[in-house]
Amino acid sequence: MRYTLLLQYPEMSAEDLGAEALAEGMRAFDAYAKALDDAGVLRSAEVLHPSSATTTVRLRDGRPVVQDGPFADTKEQLGGSFVIEVDDLDAAIAWAAQAPSATWGAVEVRPVATRFVDGAWHGAVPVQ
């Protein structure tokens, strides 16, 4: 079963973190991604730009309303995601607990319902 691990943590600039902490974080995430890949469970991994680079779009009265910045004004922001394919939720939780950011933020484990591959939707909730 596929799960998306959503990494949520307080945003800090490189200057706030400091060069040493930034380098250590990069090494930790590299090791984590390689461990997932070596185990054969990694399907994708993405690191996002800071929420300050976000553009939020909503439709109001049929017209797009564009807002600079994230929808939610919270202390924690979505920093990235890993999509993994494992046997069950327990395995997904075990991998989530190994994410470096689990020590300073949260890792949301969410099952994937459907996915679009090779021109069609596949999964537990197929799109007609």
Results as ranks from 00 to 15, higher is better:
residue 32 Y to F: 10
residue 98 Q to K: 15
residue 35 A to M: 04
residue 94 A to V: 05
residue 71 F to Y: 15
residue 55 T to S: 07
residue 104 W to C: 11
residue 108 E to A: 10
residue 79 G to W: 02
residue 74 T to F: 12
residue 28 A to L: 11
residue 126 P to E: 13
residue 64 P to I: 09
residue 25 G to V: 04
residue 3 Y to I: 10
residue 12 M to R: 15
residue 102 A to T: 01
residue 107 V to L: 03
residue 1 M to T: 13
residue 61 D to G: 10
residue 26 M to A: 07
residue 120 A to D: 13
residue 105 G to D: 09
residue 63 R to E: 10
residue 103 T to N: 09
residue 64 P to F: 01
residue 123 G to K: 02
residue 30 D to F: 00
residue 105 G to V: 08
residue 66 V to N: 05
residue 46 E to P: 12
residue 105 G to F: 00
residue 114 T to D: 10
residue 100 P to A: 05
residue 104 W to R: 15
residue 53 A to I: 11
residue 24 E to D: 08
residue 90 D to S: 09
residue 45 A to F: 06
residue 90 D to K: 13
residue 84 I to F: 00
residue 66 V to Q: 05
residue 119 G to N: 12
residue 119 G to W: 04
residue 8 Q to F: 13
residue 22 L to D: 01
residue 28 A to T: 12
residue 29 F to G: 04
residue 43 R to V: 13
residue 14 A to D: 14
residue 101 S to T: 13
residue 86 V to H: 06
residue 96 A to D: 11
residue 24 E to V: 05
residue 19 A to T: 10
residue 127 V to E: 08
residue 25 G to L: 05
residue 108 E to F: 05
residue 114 T to W: 05
residue 22 L to Y: 01
residue 101 S to W: 01
residue 92 A to V: 10
residue 124 A to C: 00
residue 57 V to I: 14
residue 72 A to P: 02
residue 112 V to Y: 06
residue 25 G to W: 04
residue 88 D to S: 01
residue 15 E to Y: 03
residue 77 Q to E: 07
residue 89 L to M: 11
residue 97 A to S: 14
residue 54 T to H: 09
residue 105 G to Q: 10
residue 77 Q to S: 13
residue 72 A to H: 13
residue 57 V to Q: 04
residue 87 D to C: 06
residue 110 R to C: 04
residue 70 P to L: 08
residue 115 R to Y: 10
residue 122 H to V: 15
residue 101 S to H: 07
residue 22 L to E: 03
residue 94 A to Q: 10
residue 128 Q to P: 12
residue 52 S to H: 03
residue 116 F to V: 13
residue 78 L to I: 15
residue 111 P to N: 04
residue 26 M to I: 10
residue 10 P to G: 03
residue 112 V to H: 04
residue 59 L to N: 07
residue 52 S to V: 08
